[in-house]
Design a protein around this nucleic acid. Sequence first.
RNA 1: GGGGUUGUAGCUCAGUCGGUUAGAGCGCCGGCCUGUCACGCCGGAGGUCGCGAGUUCGAGUCUCGUCAGCCCCGCCA
Length: 612
Amino acid sequence: MKERAISKRFFDDSWKRSSYCGYIPSPGENGGDVVLNGWLRRRRDLGGIIFIDLWDHTGTVQVVLGPDMGPAYEQAKSLRNEFVLAIRGKVRKRPEGTENPSLLTGDREVLAEDLLVLSPSRPLPFEMSEADRVDENLRLRSRYLDLRRPFMQNNLRLRSRAAEFTRSYLSSEGFVEVETPMLTKSTPEGARDYLVPARVTPGRFFALPQSPQIFKQILMVGGMDRYYQIVKCFRDEDLRADRQPEFTQIDIEMSFINEEDITSLMEGYMKGLFQSILGEALDVPFPRLSWHEAIDRYGSDKPDLRIRSEILDLDAVFSGSSFDAFKKILDQGGVVRGLRLPGGASLSRKEISDLEARAKELGAAGLAPFAFKEGGLKGPLVKFLSEEEQVRLIAVSGMQEGDILLAASGPWRETCEVLGHLRLETGRRSSQVEEDAWAFLWVTDFPLLEWDDDEQRWSAVHHPFTSPNLEDLELLSSDPGKVRSRAYDLVLNGTEVGGGSIRIHDPAVQQRMFEVMNFTPERARERFGFLIDALSSGTPPHGGIALGFDRLVMLLCGAHSIRDVIAFPKTQKAQCLMSGAPSDVDPVQLSDLHIALDLSEEGKRCGSGGEE
RNA sequence: GGGGUUGUAGCUCAGUCGGUUAGAGCGCCGGCCUGUCACGCCGGAGGUCGCGAGUUCGAGUCUCGUCAGCCCCGCCA
């Protein structure tokens, strides 16, 4: 940047804007004198006259700088992109034939009379006009520029409006916003914690909350009745397009309620939110599926209902067939499931083998294609099916001429999930997705416990305070894997946007849970002692939900990553490319904390949504 | 931890079968231009081909490793 003299003029009241760039009064209305503040988005220097596009978050307006503006014209020649300017001038109608219909303010312009450069700009690492094509690496490093783009402006402003709606809705429903600690206690189960050491407590660590779960339950014990918070949560896990190491939840908990209270509250919330933000009228109540049905029909506990196709049960077709591999699996209690791809018979050999490779990557033993063409089934396994079985396969799958059916076999859940992934991926590729639909649904009746092979014990699918379905209480001893929980997830367009449960409020049931999970009383006490004490001190029946605010806003914005709705997101390696965090610290800071580093293995340098 | 993909000028990209001095558009710098709006015209500067090894007479190009971005599997109660 060139050396510039420090201007004797400064940003006094006379230079404060009288109008935003996008809201310039039309000359007919309230034309006349204006002061503008904004960024120089583009300049066109024609030699004797200079046009600049002055931008702020409301829009862009053309300013004309001519020799008749006096000494300031000389200065105007040195203006460059993204300089911050204050401009004094007069609004006028553009001369006939020079209107620009692609600009909202394109029928008018500001004839500059005076100009103050508030701040120059270095030549920038990328141009605003092509920022949507720029490498994300660079966007993140220069986030302040990225944020100046209309796309990011829109996303963050929409996010703000969504938060505002959330507060006002919950407040009107009698919820109290309570803040919970960020420096808190590490909890077992679940994601890896971010740990925080402190000088005054050497050798001990805080953990940043994975969610305020325990605190919100204690607030219920504390008689708060209805709590909410829009709150950051932290999980040290690997990232995805919809996961960040720190992410925001709308955290909710209510007393003296059951599942219906939560679902109707959320349906009212979503209806209001979509109406207020997008002007969309949602149909409520949302459909519900049990977890078992979701896996069985869609191969996912967060099915995207915008895709019509479902996974097909082919057990009956293959149980009598002479294909031994499938029969053997069926005899062992496994399943045969299929996925019909409309028009898929025209897939090339390579496309089919790619699908097979993907199925294997997802854990399937293989994938058997049955193409329906030239009036009959084609495929390597057709010869194992009798005429009658072929007819039945076509009938069961609803195949039409030109379709293909992909069959897989193995354990129920794994097989469904493999086909569930293929359903999504092929559905998206062949645009079977109803793009402008908002497909909400509730997934209920999750299993309460699952067997943890590593630790050789039952562990909570949701978390250890989730209430079992009281009808299944007996199974807790006899067949823990069969116990249904009172947990529920809210799914939108194949994204889990929220999840929660009715909690255990009976200390005896909680005790029973810990026993099944093989937590000794000592271990339970060490980890959750304060919660156990609280729950033994008069606990109202209670339950709640947490919504993944970033994911919800992402869907509202039509963005494809939550990074696009977070002002300062981190990369997949959980780095902040702008600030360079995390970074080395001064050895003195470490010694204050009594921390010694052992990086012999790792070398010197060096995963989030609505679930609670 | 694993699979895929990308990395060449400030940005977006091209670069043939491994072969002489690595190119284009935009941006930047200088000059010209009074109705442009992706202004136009003339000229110029600008390169650790992500990094490190290896193969070769010769590597942007081939091989191995490594770093970083993105997508995915595992993981995320």
